[in-house]
């Protein structure tokens, strides 16, 4: 509690958390200096009988110093942010060979489209699971996300990952989970009266578990979809 960022489980975590703590230290120092300064000045220079304020209009040196120090500090923060941002969301940030899934957001659920046994997305053997994203650990994963109705935002706090999903646009969201386990997916953009319950899960498996799960679900989907699939083709 208290400004400590919770444990995270993706490759983005260390870098984003590090940046967060660097900014926390920098702003923390500024915060302490200003607030202590204000309290100290309030006591030291409070009106007392016989005290007269000094007739001072400013001090160019002091102003140049604090302008320059602030400017340099913020530029450094900006420069440190660039590579991390590029890694997570840059134009060509999605690693080659990432496992791909389709994610379709609609009021108020996340539908995940999985590649079937052929390992290819957008083929006939794809299957869909509602509100369940299953991925293998330590593999690059990319979500091809769209929204059907309004803007939603794909948010996995444990991955430090958030991306708005806009109807009419295709978003490529990538990550690499580092620890197996179930984590919650939330919608972070107000999307209607059911916004608060637009909750889903991402389950990070070991590779073996994942392969097993995928095979089971694919077979299950195959048997369920068989009659209709034949009829429609």
């Amino acid at each position: 509690m208290g400004w400590i960022i919770p444990h995270g489980v993706s490759t983005f975590t260390p870098e984003i958390d590090r940046l967060y703590y660097i900014i926390l230290v920098i702003t923390g120092i500024a915060f302490v200096l200003v607030e202590i300064g204000l309290i100290y000045f309030s006591f030291k220079y409070r009106a007392q009988p016989g005290r007269k304020a000094h007739y001072i209009h400013g001090n160019v040196t002091a102003e140049v110093i604090w302008t320059a120090v602030t400017a340099v500090t913020v530029v450094i923060i900006g420069i440190m942010s660039v590579p991390v941002w590029n890694k997570v969301k840059g134009r060509n940030s999605v690693p080659a060979g990432a496992l791909a899934y389709n994610v379709t957001a609609k009021q108020f659920e996340w539908n995940v489209g999985y590649p079937g046994p052929d390992g290819q997305l957008n083929t006939a053997d794809d299957f869909k699971v509602r509100n369940q994203l299953h991925v293998p650990v330590n593999r690059d994963v990319v979500l091809e996300a769209t929204a059907e109705d309004v803007i939603h935002s794909f948010f996995v706090p444990a991955f430090r990952l958030k991306q708005d999903v806009v109807p009419g646009m295709r978003m490529r969201i990538w990550f690499r989970a580092t620890e197996p386990g179930p984590y919650e997916i939330a919608c972070a953009e107000l999307c209607g009266l059911g916004h608060y319950k637009m909750r889903a899960f991402v389950t990070v498996h070991t590779q073996e578990e994942y392969d097993q799960w995928l095979a089971e679900r694919a077979a299950q989907a195959q048997s369920e979809a068989q009659p209709s699939a034949v009829a429609s083709r």
Binding site: S42, Y45, R46, T67, G78
Partner: peptide, 30 residues
Amino acid sequence: FTISTLLIAVPSAIKVFNWMGTMWRGSIHF
């Protein structure tokens, strides 16, 4: 937008420091 946003911290900081400078060596009636 990151750079332009961070730059806006500069005039804001100038203002805060100048307010503190205004109190400095004053005779503050609370």
